[in-house]
Amino acid sequence: MRTGAVFATTAIALVSGLVIGQPQIERWQEARIDSCEQRAARLSQLDLLDRWPSTLQPVSPTAGCDSSDGIAPYAARRFNGIPDPGGVTAYYRTAVEQDGWTVAVGIPSTALLCASRDVDGTTAYLTVSAGTDSSVDLYISDETQSGSQRCA
């Protein structure tokens, strides 16, 4: 009998805590989103998004918060043109090394280049990949990408 009373009291306390705690959770989530948007704005200011090989033409950059794996800030840019994978890789390898990025050794087959660097106290990860047969994507985030685009 005592076990049932303890269970009922625990269940009521848990439900009450969830109901009372909801506004705090919502404020915490809103603060996380605000922080993510600020970080995305910071990543969008990185010089690499404004540099590209002469064989490519830039498309407007994007920045925001990716919610597929939690809330991760990112900045990205697509470049149109017929990419020469070797030339694009060489161009960005030189550019990232000049900007203080560390080029990754483990690069997935779908990526041309992966690198990481501290940006204001947080590690940022860069991926250069062939978006399509006629485009290249540059993606910078505070989290490594998942799946085949993951840079180790």
Score class of each variant (00 low, 15 high):
residue 83 P to Q: 10
residue 142 D to S: 06
residue 79 F to P: 00
residue 147 G to Q: 05
residue 46 L to E: 14
residue 117 R to N: 14
residue 120 D to I: 08
residue 122 T to Q: 07
residue 109 S to Y: 11
residue 138 L to K: 03
residue 115 A to C: 10
residue 84 D to Y: 10
residue 130 A to G: 13
residue 70 G to C: 06
residue 7 F to N: 11
residue 49 L to V: 05
residue 111 A to Y: 00
residue 118 D to Y: 05
residue 143 E to T: 15
residue 23 P to N: 06
residue 113 L to M: 09
residue 137 D to H: 05
residue 38 Q to K: 15
residue 151 C to D: 07
residue 77 R to M: 03
residue 11 A to S: 15
residue 42 R to M: 15
residue 35 S to K: 10
residue 118 D to M: 09
residue 52 W to M: 11
residue 150 R to M: 05
residue 147 G to M: 08
residue 114 C to S: 05
residue 76 A to Q: 05
residue 58 P to W: 00
residue 24 Q to M: 10
residue 128 V to K: 00
residue 132 T to Q: 10
residue 47 D to I: 11
residue 97 E to D: 13
residue 30 E to N: 12
residue 102 T to Y: 06
residue 43 L to Y: 03
residue 88 V to H: 01
residue 84 D to G: 11
residue 126 L to H: 00
residue 68 S to L: 11
residue 55 T to M: 13
residue 29 Q to S: 06
residue 84 D to S: 14
residue 104 A to Y: 00
residue 148 S to M: 08
residue 30 E to M: 07
residue 137 D to S: 09
residue 58 P to I: 01
residue 16 S to G: 14
residue 18 L to N: 12
residue 61 P to R: 15
residue 32 R to V: 01
residue 68 S to Q: 13
residue 147 G to A: 10
residue 101 W to P: 02
residue 30 E to C: 06
residue 59 V to N: 04
residue 102 T to K: 14
residue 52 W to P: 02
residue 68 S to M: 11
residue 74 Y to K: 03
residue 6 V to H: 12
residue 53 P to Y: 04
residue 93 R to C: 02
residue 133 D to Q: 13
residue 67 S to K: 07
residue 25 I to Y: 12
residue 90 A to L: 12
residue 102 T to Q: 14
residue 20 I to V: 14
residue 16 S to H: 08
residue 33 I to E: 10
residue 93 R to E: 02
residue 116 S to L: 05
residue 104 A to E: 08
residue 105 V to A: 14
residue 152 A to S: 08
residue 121 G to Y: 08
residue 99 D to P: 05
residue 127 T to S: 14
residue 3 T to W: 15
residue 78 R to K: 15
residue 106 G to H: 05
residue 20 I to T: 05
residue 26 E to N: 12
residue 18 L to D: 11
residue 17 G to N: 04
residue 132 T to W: 08
residue 144 T to M: 02
residue 71 I to W: 06
residue 107 I to A: 03
residue 101 W to I: 01
residue 77 R to V: 01
residue 152 A to Y: 05
residue 32 R to S: 08
residue 40 A to E: 02
residue 92 Y to L: 04
residue 22 Q to R: 11
residue 22 Q to D: 02
residue 150 R to V: 03
residue 35 S to Q: 12
residue 105 V to N: 07
residue 38 Q to R: 15
residue 151 C to M: 07
residue 31 A to E: 09
residue 136 V to N: 02
residue 130 A to I: 03
residue 11 A to Y: 11
residue 85 P to A: 08
residue 118 D to V: 07
residue 94 T to K: 14
residue 49 L to H: 09
residue 102 T to H: 14
residue 97 E to N: 12
residue 120 D to R: 13
residue 90 A to Q: 13
residue 83 P to V: 02
residue 64 G to Q: 09
residue 112 L to E: 04
residue 9 T to P: 03
residue 15 V to G: 10
residue 59 V to F: 01
residue 147 G to C: 05
residue 5 A to S: 10
residue 29 Q to G: 00
residue 107 I to F: 04
residue 133 D to N: 13
residue 42 R to C: 09
residue 71 I to D: 00
residue 57 Q to S: 15
residue 103 V to G: 02
residue 120 D to Q: 15
residue 75 A to I: 09
residue 7 F to S: 12
residue 59 V to W: 01
residue 14 L to A: 12
residue 103 V to L: 01
residue 132 T to E: 12
residue 21 G to I: 04
residue 117 R to P: 08
residue 43 L to A: 04
residue 107 I to H: 03
residue 87 G to R: 11
residue 76 A to P: 06
residue 28 W to Y: 14
residue 61 P to N: 14
residue 135 S to T: 11
residue 93 R to S: 03
residue 38 Q to H: 15
